[in-house]
Design a protein around this nucleic acid. Structure first.
Lengths: 134, 134
DNA sequence: CGGTATCCGGCCAGATACTG
DNA sequence: CAGTATCTGGCCGGATACCG
């Protein structure tokens, strides 16, 4: 698997300022989307479990993200109309196709984060504030 | 190619609030990174060409994004020290591995944007502001 | 050409309180 | 349990002007 010039050349729309595919890209360019979509790929999940498993997300951001994903047809919201309330979120078919694209990104982050940190530290050391003078 | 439960279960760190891999994910969760990294995969590119091809980006955001990618070891900045100035940006090996993960996301956006738009319009119609009352 | 520096409005997102 | 409503500070990013 190698990125070829032909593959990149095949991309055109996303580089166009006003193409709707740019909007699609911006929808996906979100850390919460990057976490939630692959998480839903395993099984339908309730609001509460997402709150616990996607650490650091607030109820507000969770609802907001899920709503936006539902609005764009990526996630289906299943309300069981029961008491106490029970709501499940699951991927649509289009959502599943997205999870196939996003999972490798998450895996990449887990695999390379140590090298990123090392590179960052090296860079910051070389470019340390010269006004301190040493 | 199908996303399995095992694959998602293999992800752990990114869902942890304080793991560095979360920071790695947030670095990538940017529309400009999503556009610039795959674009550099084809060949080394100059600042000026990026400005023209990545439509809508400002000089400020371009420099800021490239600097952050360079800092994290994903992009190398080649300054030819010539007059007039000539600077090229190219992917490092780690940057190339990232482009392999990001290209499918861009392709997904181009392929599905029409369905996203359609879903959004349908959703907004059903959930139209009820206070208007009809 | 390839950047910096500075200003500033707008929206993002956290905190908090409340609801069916 | 699964949300909504409201307030607010912070920072993101566009616009503009300047520099080697």
């Amino acid at each position: 698997m190698k990125t070829t010039i032909a593959q990149v050349a095949s991309l055109a729309d996303v580089y166009s300022k006003d193409c709707p595919s740019r909007a699609a890209l911006e929808l996906v360019a979100s850390k919460w989307v990057l976490l939630i979509i692959p998480f839903l790929a395993a099984k339908p999940v309730r609001n509460n479990e997402l709150m616990r498993r996607v650490q650091g997300i607030s109820q507000k951001m969770l609802t907001q993200t899920l709503r936006e994903l539902e609005r764009n047809g990526l996630v289906a919201r299943i309300d069981y109309q029961s008491v106490p309330p029970r709501v499940e979120y699951q991927l649509t078919e289009m959502g599943r196709s997205l999870s196939h694209a996003l999972l490798p990104v998450d895996q990449w982050a887990e695999k390379h984060h140590a090298r990123l940190t090392a590179a960052r530290q090296a860079f910051d050391e070389v470019n340390a504030d010269p006004s301190r003078g040493n």
